[in-house]
């Protein structure tokens, strides 16, 4: 499998690897897994005042494309509101990393992971900060 330069860069220098403490304020976790390949992905976001994602961390057990996809997403979501982050599509990830068709599922996994993290945040904290942000806009 020939990986693109961007995949190799993210694979060799993954951004934002690690975890936040679970009880840290504003932290939410998305965990997803791909049965077909057994890849497991954990993506955490830390949401600050105004409903903006201040920081993100990930941990992925999977192939280079899965690691690169999650690494890229943690970079992309920083500075975005929850709604903006929820708008990230796997096609954008696949395009940015030039993933071949057989690796598209890795980008889907990353999209599902960020969506799961946002859903976890909203379950934990409600729409509070997000709603406050919208009202202020």
């Amino acid at each position: 499998m020939a990986y693109s330069e961007k995949v190799i860069d993210h694979y060799e220098h993954p951004r934002n690897v690690g975890s936040f403490a679970k009880d840290e304020d504003g932290v939410a976790t998305g965990m997803v897994g791909a049965p077909a390949c057994g890849d497991v992905m954990k993506l955490q976001i830390k949401v600050g005042a105004g409903g903006v994602i201040e920081d993100a961390k990930f941990k992925t057990y999977g192939c280079g494309s899965a690691i690169a996809s999650s690494s890229l997403v943690t970079e992309w979501v920083k500075g975005k509101t929850l709604d903006e982050a929820a708008g990230i599509r796997n096609t954008q990830i696949a395009e940015e990393l030039a993933l071949p068709p057989v690796k598209i599922h890795c980008s889907i996994l990353a999209e599902d992971a960020i969506k799961a993290a946002i859903a976890d945040y909203r379950k934990k904290y409600g729409e509070g900060e997000d709603a406050a942000k919208k009202a202020a806009d």
Binding site: M31, G33, A36, G38, K42
Partner: peptide, 19 residues
């Protein structure tokens, strides 16, 4: 359909165990 290609929403405790 077992959804092996499409279903990524496994139970959290199961995924935690995999991790």
């Amino acid at each position: 359909d077992t959804g092996e290609e499409s279903n990524t929403a496994m139970p959290p405790d199961f995924l935690m165990q995999q991790m």
